[in-house]
């Protein structure tokens, strides 16, 4: 074990950690927001909406995230030269940094997994509650906002910790496209020092610490929400 490289690379590793956290936070928040319409489409939507949303979730959950990321970044990139005049007119799109592709891929993925959970949660809210709200004269939107979504959300809250940790555990894949996230920087260390165990172990330790922090934070959040448990 040799660690003399660590001080030199600490600033870069810290920057990489920030990028990793950015990917995690943005993709979880945006992915969750996207999961709600996806789940609603499967629960309440018409035939087409139900099928499309279902197919989307099957695709996301049935293929490796690595391949989804490759398709988004390299697959789409390989189409740019086919667009006439892209180099002149679409330079902003072409030059979009790889980090945006990573965030998009991770958001789409989180949405697919979370929609499946939200679907179950929406279905498990007793119909009587919704009917009562309707009978009070609430509009469908208001029912969703005041009754349906809050009770479904409370149901998924305990599973959210696991989902967020699952998402955290996927973030090292960002290094497979040119992004300098924590793993990307560690990869650079491996390249510069020809050492493989130490940088990987370092990243592993940081991920363990992050997992611990997330578990603690969500535990606190759950305790803040009063829940009546009927067993």
């Amino acid at each position: 074990m040799r660690w003399e490289w660590l001080p030199d690379y600490l600033p870069a590793l810290a920057e990489g950690l920030l990028i990793t956290l950015e990917v995690l936070v943005v993709s979880v928040v945006a992915g969750f927001a996207l999961a709600i319409p996806l789940a609603l489409a499967q629960v309440k939507g018409g035939y087409l909406a139900r099928k499309l949303a279902g197919a989307y979730c099957s695709y996301i959950r049935g293929t490796p995230l690595l391949m989804q990321l490759y398709l988004l970044y390299y697959g789409i990139g390989s189409l740019f030269p086919l667009i006439p005049g892209a180099r002149e007119n679409l330079m902003w799109l072409i030059r979009l940094d790889a980090i945006y592709y990573v965030i998009l891929a991770f958001t789409l993925s989180f949405a697919g997994y979370e929609a499946e959970i939200m679907r179950g949660a929406f279905l498990s809210v007793p119909g009587g509650e919704l009917e009562a709200a309707e009978a009070m004269g609430m509009s469908p939107g208001l029912v969703l906002r005041r009754i349906w979504f809050p009770s479904a959300f409370l149901k998924v809250l305990p599973t959210l910790t696991g989902e967020v940790i699952g998402q955290l555990k996927s973030t090292p894949l960002a290094f497979t496209v040119p992004v300098q996230d924590l793993m990307g920087v560690a990869h650079k260390v491996m390249q510069d020092t020809y050492r493989i165990y130490e940088p990987l172990l370092f990243v592993a330790l940081v991920y363990l610490a992050l997992t611990y922090v997330i578990v603690q934070a969500f535990g606190r959040l759950e305790r803040l929400v009063p829940q009546r448990r009927s067993v």
């Binding site: 955290l168 555990k169 973030t171 090292p172 493989i196 165990y197 990243v203 592993a204 991920y207 363990l208």
Partner: peptide, 14 residues
């Protein structure tokens, strides 16, 4: 608790 990608790389070499 560890990311699969890191675990797989570590285990593969070690």
């Amino acid at each position: 608790a560890l990311p699969e990608a890191i675990l797989i790389m570590l285990l593969y070499y070690a």
